[in-house]
């Protein structure tokens, strides 16, 4: 059986700086995989390549056996990849419900319909999605006045609108209060396990990572340095060195140790 997402030797450089090099991993349906690493490790670049915002220099991305390398984000989305952003991106001039309706209209290929009322389209589905993330009470509110935590939940509802096989979440809890973070990730994990959605997320909050991830990958300076269960990664000496900063990171001897 092929993996849901299979990434091979992904690489991207910006004028001599190797932002990401030789990253390979795979993700099964229903699995929750965390991608962690210090600032500037290449997490966001990696993410943006997966959903097509950035074209990789080399490597391949395969979604359920289909090559999606270098496709535009909107094409990738049509193949069943939902995405949330580090800084929420929603439609500020619409109500909460309309935000989800637009995603549903797009999913059903109805965006070119010119002569029906969009506000009445896919009402039930929109309500169901909002209920799933606990936003049904706020459906009629203008999106522009929502609190940040609610915007994050709305983004999740939008990302789920196309019944995705894979959910990409770039720092899903960034900018949220501690309690909200835990709630949002529990919610996401619950939905993913129930629907068999594969989730890949980046995160700085280790509590969130270790509570929910089935597996953790650590990215440092563009390369994957550790992959495994949360427990194994937690004990990995290299990972400890990066996060605790033993001062040997830029030491030549240490780097030789890396290669060995």
């Amino acid at each position: 059986m092929t993996a849901l997402l299979d990434v091979r030797n992904l690489a991207k450089s910006y004028g001599g700086v190797h932002a990401v090099r030789g990253v390979s991993f795979s993700l099964e349906a229903g699995q929750i995989l965390a991608l962690i690493g210090p600032n500037g490790a290449g997490k966001s670049t990696c993410f943006n390549m997966l959903n097509g915002q950035i074209r990789p220099n080399a490597g391949s991305i395969t979604l359920a056996g289909q090559d999606i390398t270098g496709l535009a984000p909107r094409v990738v989305w049509r193949k069943g990849v939902g995405r949330t952003f580090q800084i929420t991106a929603t439609f500020a001039s619409m109500t909460v419900r309309e935000n989800v309706q637009v995603a549903l209209l797009s999913h059903h290929g109805k965006l070119w319909a010119a002569f029906r009322y969009a506000g009445a389209a896919y009402l039930k589905e929109a309500e169901a999605l909002l209920a799933l993330v606990g936003m049904e009470a706020q459906a009629a509110r203008p999106c522009g006045e929502l609190a940040y935590g609610d915007l994050k939940r709305l983004e999740l509802a939008i990302a789920l609108a196309n019944d995705p096989k894979l959910l990409l979440m770039d720092e899903p809890t960034a900018g949220m209060a501690p309690k909200e973070r835990v709630d949002l990730m529990r919610l996401t994990a619950g939905i993913a396990r129930e629907k068999g959605i594969g989730v890949l997320f980046t995160e700085h909050d280790m509590d969130v990572v270790f509570e929910h991830a089935d597996s953790v990958m650590v990215l440092n300076r563009g390369e994957l340095i550790a992959t495994g269960s949360p427990e194994a990664v937690r004990r990995d000496p290299q990972v400890r060195a990066i996060y605790l900063g033993d001062g040997l990171l830029y030491d030549a001897k240490h780097r030789e140790g890396d290669a060995a």
């Binding site: 049509r78 439609f91 619409m94 319909a113 010119a114």
Partner: peptide, 28 residues
């Protein structure tokens, strides 16, 4: 006015509000 409130109008407004999000939900 009908166009404004049609799915087409919503899609158009979506790409105005957020280019990033509209691209990420399949809007050309």
């Amino acid at each position: 006015r009908v166009l404004v409130f049609s799915p087409f109008g919503y899609g158009l407004r979506a790409s105005r509000d957020s280019a990033l999000r509209s691209e990420a939900i399949g809007i050309d």
